[in-house]
Design a protein around this nucleic acid. Sequence first.
DNA 1: TTAAAATGTAAATTATATGTTACAATTAGA
DNA 2: TCTAATTGTAACATATAATTTACATTTTAA
Lengths: 70, 70
Amino acid sequence: MKEISVKNKVKLARIEKGNLTQGEFAKLVGVTRQTMSLIEAQKYNPTIKVCLLLSKHLERPVDELFWVEE
Amino acid sequence: MKEISVKNKVKLARIEKGNLTQGEFAKLVGVTRQTMSLIEAQKYNPTIKVCLLLSKHLERPVDELFWVEE
DNA sequence: TTAAAATGTAAATTATATGTTACAATTAGA
DNA sequence: TCTAATTGTAACATATAATTTACATTTTAA
């Protein structure tokens, strides 16, 4: 796999979107709090399935939440 | 993980975009031909990293290439 | 100030994305 | 029609996403 860095603004978007806690939001999306924590800390390269669920609940397109670091 | 089905139009987009072969396109993106084949056959749930690379080379947003099946 | 809630993270495990090698089936071009 | 290129896919190996359990640290609210 190509060595690129993917960034995201999931944490910011979660706060902006009704100030849900990580745990509440994780439950809503259908992943564990730990998975959400690692995604927000940008230590995971999540699957498109999770990203589409995040996108849906945050009401923001995937391309706005995730991008390739230059 | 939530039991949802993710669909994509990667194969169509690849053909439209200059009619590259699967192998040529896979090399461009930086994955193997087999991985590309499985993604196009919708048998994989690829990572956001691969999706962003696909999006870049196909010049179409991730949200246009991938969606959740209703 | 202090206790409860929220968050970060680590270790062990499970599930699965991706790679490698290989071959069969399909498609396209001569 | 024949052959080469393209594609589908299977088996096995590896890397890592995601879960589970658990605990320490930080933040929030009384």
